[in-house]
Design a protein around this nucleic acid. Structure first.
Length: 862
DNA sequence: CTCAACTTACTTTTT
DNA sequence: GTAAGTTGAG
């Protein structure tokens, strides 16, 4: 992912608010225009302006392999986008001849936008800028038949895959408790990350699942995908790799096509992505004559086997790729935090061996953080072995720079309370909440903060987590659409055939399934056949007939109705909408609202098919981030972002570093955790607060915890241990945690002044803060299930609910706009009447959910 | 076939 | 502690 807001002030040009480059449009200032003119006279393109020498070198070294090691906050995305702009403006290639890959859609979107700014609107997008997967689909659609698929293949999501695997495991007569579909899907994922097809699975690996049936099952799975005309995410990379290997002619086409290859976040590439890149990169220069092509090693030399050794570099470098490879990879080995999902830090560490003669450029001037923060980060990460080694150079220190604060709290509740207080104080001093982030190691930590912020009425947003398209109702609706658009989509069919309940249970479904399997036809067709027979029970038969007839009718409407209209008809006539309307549960109204939102978002696409493709690949929707709110997210999802003030709670052994990372990953696991800590620390621009608590509830059990070893790895001169607001300061400040961990360091914490003060503070806080401000407004960016029970019915905020992102966004600081008796709608509780009003808090009699107390910004008039 | 009670497991997350 | 998934009764 890209370093999001890194339109950083240029080095030596202190904190100027990020201004667009002079070229950015008519708004550019006179001075900027003058400078532009001057530079153009010198023949220097204005987009190069303000780049530091290293950045500039990275942009201008367009030929040959280049590795840009970009430390945190050094302008990575800027380099990447400027480089592309440079290639285009120097006429080195057309936009369509540049392959640029990212990991996330967000990063791709952002890059497109920024390139657009740099080169002006002249260039119509970049067709080959996208995620590995979206580019993979594009390639695979063109050559689907070579992978045994039709070009309209479906892309399965994790849900579909697991259901499919469950069937296969059961069909194999295995106990799906002992051998869970979930774990097998992860295993397959792992294999695919390494580029292994079923035949590449070693004996040992095959034995790891279901007593050696792993390989067989994997094979069966792939076969099943073929008959379903479907692929999983891994296939989007593996199929192209296989096609490139087996059809050199096709590979050559792509070689001729892509003159420049750029890769973002190279440290996150897995082996499959690496192979994919190597295949595309390893080629004669695009201007080469056919004669030269013969000298190039055959692409099929590239098999996954050389990957096996711990250091397969020698085999790789023997490829002797003599022709120029204009590949530029940008990354930071210190920010590799996705090893657990197959990323190979090794890819970046041996870049120069893979691409002999590579230019390696280090970006070490950090424009983001204060020297204290940078000092802490550098000292911490230095504890890792096996890094490239970079020294981040800080900007000049400023008078009011604060050291990194380390705080202690008695338990997680107090931690949340104190953080909340600190944020409120910052807010009073005029800080924007948007500039503040709380970065947690694990998502369960978020809850405590949410609870607290709800009582404080502090706006916050949660970033990450289950997304819109992963919600049950959205998936169900999508399944209907999929069956209509692609009648062969059995998984979609199975998902909704009995949703809403139609009395088509396991038995009937099994019959349809077996019939379809036996004849190798889609289940929808099988169902069609079966309703003509006597095989099904009369009840099931008529239910199934209705389903089949419905789908036939809807399919007939594809060309006559607009796809949004059709979607409405489908949801309506299938009884799906009615199912939720009749649902008495509290979240039903929210789900209906989500369905409306789904239809609304379909309007942005031309056809049903186009929409389905979008959803399969881009599992996020853009969300309004217009309100001022504290950001809460995991450390993982914070990569690439930056905030003025960052809170890092939960620095305790077992949580961070996470126990499981230590157990399963050993030393490298610990190092990855340390990199995660490094990522967290380097997100902060000005203020960084690290917290640890002495008691935390894990799996519902209170546990005494000890401070994270990472705390000891922070340099004394940049850290300030804040005792004052701690409930258990005594002694720890001085010893810098050195004696922590043995014995029971917290035994007498209850009696320390700090603890008593904390108790005092706690009750004060609840008294003073409660009701003293307008309702907190919450938005969940891409956050799921409209309920999750967060905040509901705890403490004095009974009924306060954090909802999906469809929550009304209005922040009313004035007295409530509602009056007793008003009819209102609430995202979670549905419709109801206002029973009484207390400031901005309403007591509402809900039709289905009973009486609840809610904050007015969460309801809207009906 | 459906629903309710019980059991069980539990980082991180993109596509 | 909680959410999801499975088992057993109606």
């Amino acid at each position: 992912m890209s370093d999001f807001p890194d339109d950083i002030p240029f080095f030596g040009e202190p904190d100027v608010p990020a201004t667009p480059t002079p070229q950015a449009g008519p708004k550019a200032g006179i001075a900027a225009r003058a400078m532009q003119a001057r530079n153009q006279q010198r023949g220097e393109p204005d987009y190069l302006q303000g780049l530091n020498p290293e950045q500039r070198q990275a942009v201008e070294t367009t030929e040959g392999p280049v590795l840009v090691l970009a430390g945190a906050g050094t302008g990575k995305t800027r380099v990447l986008t400027t480089r592309i702009a440079h290639i285009i403006q120097q006429n080195l290639a057309f936009p369509s001849q540049i392959l640029a890959v990212t990991f996330t859609n967000k990063a791709a979107r952002e890059m497109k936008e920024r390139i657009g700014h740099l080169v002006g609107g002249a260039v119509e997008g970049m067709p080959w800028l996208g995620t590995f997967h979206s580019i993979g689909v594009k390639i695979l659609r063109r050559h689907a038949e070579l992978a045994g698929l039709r070009s309209d293949f479906t892309i399965l999501d994790t849900d579909d895959v697991i259901r499919l695997l469950k069937q296969l495991i059961q069909a194999e007569g295995l106990d799906d408790k002992r051998w869970t579909p979930r774990s097998f899907s992860m295993m397959i994922d792992g294999w695919k990350n390494k580029g292994y097809g079923p035949s590449d699975i070693s004996e040992g690996d095959a034995r790891a699942f279901a007593n050696g049936k792993g390989r067989e099952l994997y094979h069966a799975y792939q076969e099943r995908l073929k008959t379903l005309n479907a692929c999983d995410f891994g296939d989007l990379l593996l199929h192209p790799i296989r096609i490139f290997r087996n059809y050199p002619d096709i590979l050559r086409e792509y070689h001729a096509k892509f003159r420049y290859i750029l890769v973002d976040e190279y440290q996150d590439t897995n082996t499959a992505q690496y192979m994919w890149l190597r295949l595309l990169a390893q080629r004669p220069s695009t201007q080469s004559s056919p004669a030269q092509t013969k000298n190039t090693p055959n692409a099929t030399d590239w098999s996954p086997e050389p990957m096996r050794g711990p250091h397969g570099a020698s085999e790789r470098s023997e490829l002797g790729v003599s022709a120029k490879i204009n590949i530029c990879c940008v990354g930071d080995d210190d920010q590799s935090i996705y090893g657990w999902r197959g990323a190979e830090v090794d890819n970046i560490l041996r870049f120069d061996k893979d691409f002999p003669g590579a230019t390696i450029i280090r970006l070490e001037r950090n424009y983001r953080s204060t020297p204290h923060i940078l000092g802490a980060a550098s000292y911490l990460i230095a504890h890792n072995e096996g890094r490239f080694g970079k020294t981040l150079l800080a900007q000049a220190a400023s008078e009011d720079d604060e050291k990194v604060h380390v705080h202690a709290a008695w338990d997680s509740e107090e931690e949340a309370r104190a953080v909340g207080e600190e944020i409120e104080q910052a807010q009073r001093q005029g800080h924007l909440l948007n500039d503040i982030a709380i970065l947690v190691r694990a998502s369960f930590q978020m809850r405590e903060f949410e609870d607290r912020f709800v009582t404080l009425g502090l706006n916050y947003r949660v970033i990450g987590g289950p997304r819109f398209y992963e919600r049950q109702e959205i998936r169900d609706a999508m399944a209907y659409f999929r069956v209509v658009a692609q009648p062969a989509d059995d998984l979609a069919f199975e998902r909704i055939v009995n949703t809403p309940k139609r009395g088509l249970g396991e038995a009937s479904l099994r019959l349809v399934h077996d019939y379809a399997r036996a004849r190798n036809i889609p289940m929808l067709l099988a169902a069609e056949d079966l309703i003509a027979t006597e095989e099904l029970k009369p009840k099931a038969r008529s239910a199934l007939r209705e389903v089949v007839e419905n789908f036939q009718r809807w399919q007939g409407l594809i060309d006559n109705k607009s796809h949004t209209e059709l979607a409405e008809i489908i949801l309506d006539e299938s009884g799906y909408t009615a199912m939720w309307q009749n649902d008495r549960s509290a979240e039903a109204p929210g789900r209906l609202e989500n369905l409306k939102e789904l239809i609304r978002s379909m309007e942005d696409y031309e056809s049903l098919r186009g929409f389905l493709e979008h959803v399969a690949l881009v599992m996020d929707t853009e969300k309004n981030e217009n309100m001022d709110a504290v950001n809460i997210m995991t450390l993982h999802s914070a990569k690439g972002l930056e905030f003025k003030t960052v809170f890092l709670p939960g620095w305790e052994e077992g949580l961070f570093p996470h126990q499981r990372a230590l157990d399963e990953g050993g030393r490298s696991g610990l190092e990855e955790e340390r990199r995660l800590a490094y990522v967290g620390v380097t997100r902060a621009k000005k203020n960084l607060h690290i917290w640890f608590v002495s008691n935390r509830r894990i799996h519902g059990m209170w546990q005494t915890t000890i401070p994270s070893r990472f705390l000891e790895e922070l340099p004394e001169e940049h850290v300030d241990i804040a005792e004052s607001d701690s409930s258990y300061g005594g002694g720890y400040g001085q010893s810098r945690f050195d004696n922590v961990g043995r014995g029971d360091p917290f035994a007498n914490s209850y009696s320390t002044p700090g603890w008593q003060r904390a108790q005092q503070n706690r009750s004060d806080a609840t008294r003073n803060n409660w009701g003293s401000r307008s309702g907190s407004n919450v938005e969940r960016i891409g956050y799921g299930e409209a309920d999750s029970g967060f905040g509901a019915g705890r403490g004095s905020v009974k009924g306060k609910v954090i909802d999906g992102e469809l929550v009304a966004k209005s922040v009313s600081s004035t007295a409530s706009a509602f009056k007793v008796g008003d009819r209102v709608f609430h995202m979670k509780f549905g419709n109801g009447n206002v029973a009484s009003i207390d400031g901005n808090k309403l007591t509402i009699d809900f039709d289905h959910a009973g009486q609840k107390r809610v904050i007015d910004s969460f309801v809207s008039p009906v």
